[in-house]
């Protein structure tokens, strides 16, 4: 007897992506560049977050035709994004046999109160979080991977650092709490008590914790890893830079050798101009505020 679509099978794919880089791509050609550079997966979307931010309007799931084009172009897993709460977009992506769905704040939310019931799907989901409470609520809905939200499309790592520190800091504090204090933690985090108790026991989230949102350089990737991320997502940071292919390769190497400053120095050389990026005081829409 074999069973598909179980939670261990979903989390298993997230485990296989550890120590790797997941890259946003908008064309089959970019997907090939990402795979050549050593990406563990690609995120297929119509516009990178920097362009969504520039264009404004409503951002939705990508056209199935472009997702299929990217699936055909590479042998590594293909992810795609759905709007928060838009379970029909998720049904469509599952029918397209994507390998992972990102219920993403980068797209315009479809539901202002509810996230998708991710247990209802056989395909695994990743969700963004700014703090531990959000992460645990997403896990309780069935997410097989958590990523920091950061602030997508800015090329500015400051928000991702804030979210990583918030999540890992609270995990550390929970491991110091006594059993009575865990009830208080669950209440304050608005998270299920059993998940809080499990963290107290293991000192880890129940699913892999990746970092996303504003990473643009090899040093940014290594910073995320040293702060406790188990992998990184790089969105606009690669294909909005002057010379994407060598930068993509350098970020892959930096993610593996994140503790070796000599290797980081070597791979950071001569990569051309990174994406320009924007400061947090220059933006009027914070994607990280989306999600509940």
């Amino acid at each position: 007897m074999s069973s598909t679509g179980t939670f261990p099978v979903k989390r298993g794919l997230a485990e296989m992506m550890k120590g790797g880089v997941i890259m946003d791509v908008v064309t089959a050609e970019q997907a090939k560049i990402a795979e050549d550079a050593g990406a563990v997966a690609v995120m297929a979307l119509e516009r990178v977050p920097a362009d969504i931010r520039r264009d404004g309007g409503v951002a939705r799931m990508s056209d199935p035709e472009m997702i299929e084009g990217i699936k055909a172009a590479v042998t590594i897993p293909v992810m795609a994004k759905v709007r928060i709460g838009h379970f029909v977009e998720a049904q469509i992506l599952q029918a397209l046999q994507v390998d992972f769905i990102d219920e993403s704040e980068v797209l315009t939310p479809a539901d202002e109160a509810h996230h998708i019931d991710k247990f209802a799907f056989d395909v695994p989901f990743v969700c963004g979080a700014t703090n531990l409470g959000e992460a645990l609520r997403r896990i309780s809905e069935g997410a097989a991977m958590i990523r920091s939200k950061g602030e997508a499309g800015t090329g500015n790592v400051v928000e991702a650092v804030r979210h990583m520190r918030s999540i890992t800091g609270d995990i550390k504090r929970i491991t110091q709490a006594d059993s009575a204090e865990l009830f208080e933690w669950a209440k304050n985090l608005q998270a299920p008590l059993p998940l809080v108790q499990e963290i107290a026991e293991t000192g880890k989230l129940q699913v892999p914790l990746f970092c996303a949102g504003g990473l643009a350089t090899p040093a940014d990737a290594a910073l995320a890893m040293q702060l406790g991320a188990e992998s990184v997502f790089v969105g606009s940071g690669i294909f909005k830079s002057e010379d994407p292919a060598p930068r993509a390769k350098a970020i892959v190497e930096a993610t593996t050798h994140f503790e070796d400053a000599n290797i980081l120095a070597k791979v950071s050389r001569g990569l051309g101009t990174p994406m320009t990026g924007i400061g947090m005081d220059e933006i009027n829409q914070r994607y990280a505020d989306r999600g509940w």
Partner: peptide, 29 residues
């Protein structure tokens, strides 16, 4: 990826030579 994409990933009990009880195995892509 001969067993297929992620939707075809599965778990199953496998009989292993030398083991008294089956091994519960996860097959991921």
């Amino acid at each position: 990826n001969g067993y297929g994409r992620q939707l075809e990933s599965f778990e199953a009990d496998v009989e292993v030579t030398g083991l008294a009880k089956p091994f519960h195995a996860l097959f991921i892509r």
